[in-house]
Design a protein around this nucleic acid. Structure first.
Lengths: 229, 229
DNA sequence: CAACTGGTGTAATCGGCGCTTACATTCACA
DNA sequence: TGTGAATGTAAGCGCCGATTACACCAGTTG
């Protein structure tokens, strides 16, 4: 929408004859080779530059050095491209979460729960546009993106399990676990989206403090659900 | 973006001669009279039908019965129109909040805080697209929308004050009030956006239960910050 | 009353976009 | 070596936001 992308055009540089010379390094192979991946990367880059709305199929094609119609050989629609972009972003997100969880204390479920939330918040704060892509169903159809759905379902199951462990370990005050889980998700998701949606300036929160505030509200929440000592 | 709007066009009905006949009821006055307001209403309607992205200046003009260029006499850009739409939505939101607060218990600050959160959640759940418009800075420039900014600043100040009252009344356990406020906001905002962004189906939350879950997580949060009895 | 002036709408147009179709080129495999 | 499928290009459709030149109308002023 509202393409703000201007694109410096150019591209006039020497339209070499297509016939590949005997020893020339194949200046313009007709077939790109890995266009699909390059398109996703270009789109991911566009997301990083101007948000999800700044992604246009044509611009991605331009950056990949192909004609405007070429991407439609690989993606039936712009939304399908965005879906692939979202899958890639989700892949990175998940890798981060799992890495964080690997370095979490084993015997302290609530501590692991905190690690999960912290990793979620950190990644969202440091990759706001990528987070934006995976957060809204408008940008891609979550239900159809099997990879994403299962990824997310796994993450949901993971927090559920962690919370259950924390409960049996006697770390939680009595409450509905499902409600705790949803509330926790709403908290971190809301904080991340407040960042994306530009709410923090109005709260007097600059970028550097935002991340430590994220940690603070997570701890506030956890204290709220933890059994008082 | 990605106009899905089809618009049945038509509009061919009798292009009466412009000269107004002696007693005719002025079939097509050249000047619309209140185009600005009508455009905002049309845009608001479009938001309700297909989300914020479904708003196009041309479609709003179509529904107002004017030419595609006419809106630009009143709004320098589509974003300016969206800003006006957001101001209208924010006006309604604020009215709802204030009405809810009017019927809140006077001597119980924490109860009033709960009322605030509940009104926020309820309005957001029942007017998801309107909420979407006022929630994202992408759809309009919050900082330039003086009316909105001050509205929102007032709401922020209101919750801050309510929390402070709850604290002096001894209703809160020791904690940073600002952090409580931000956490509370993140919670309700996150829940509302999870609804907008279509997360709830993945959580097994249907529309009817969502609203009572909203209440439940709000209570969970409030119990977390309240002084234990 | 007539003429001017400023506000508001129309018509035409521009470039960008998503997407489709027809055609060109190349690769992989029989 | 030939041939079909895969993958690129070229051209074009209709939509969009936005701009410009022009038409119309209302209210003021002489």
């Amino acid at each position: 929408m509202r393409r703000s992308v201007k694109s410096s055009a150019g591209k006039s540089a020497v339209v070499r004859p297509r016939r590949r010379a005997a020893r020339a390094p194949a200046p313009k192979p007709y077939h790109h080779g890995d266009l699909r991946r390059v398109l996703v990367e270009a789109a991911l880059q566009l997301v990083g530059e101007g948000g999800a709305d700044a992604v246009s199929v044509r611009e991605a094609a331009r950056r990949a050095g192909v004609s405007p119609g070429a991407p439609f050989r690989h993606f039936p629609s712009r939304d399908a491209l965005m879906q692939a972009v979202a899958e890639e972003a989700q892949r990175r997100f998940r890798a981060e979460i799992e890495a964080a969880l690997a370095g979490a204390p084993a015997g302290d479920p609530l501590g692991r729960f905190r690690c999960l939330g912290l990793a979620y918040l950190r990644w969202a704060m440091r990759n706001p546009t990528h987070f934006e892509v995976i957060s809204s169903r408008r940008l891609f159809d979550h239900d159809r993106a099997a990879a994403i759905s299962s990824d997310n379902a796994e993450l949901i199951a993971l927090t559920e399990q962690t919370l259950a462990e924390a409960f049996v370990a006697g770390q939680l005050r009595p409450a509905d676990l499902k409600q705790i889980q949803i509330a926790g998700r709403a908290l971190v998701y809301g904080f991340a989206r407040m960042n994306i949606d530009g709410h923090f300036p109005r709260w007097g929160l600059a970028a550097p403090e935002a991340e430590q505030t994220a940690e603070a509200i997570l701890d506030l929440f956890i204290e709220g659900i933890a059994k008082r000592r």
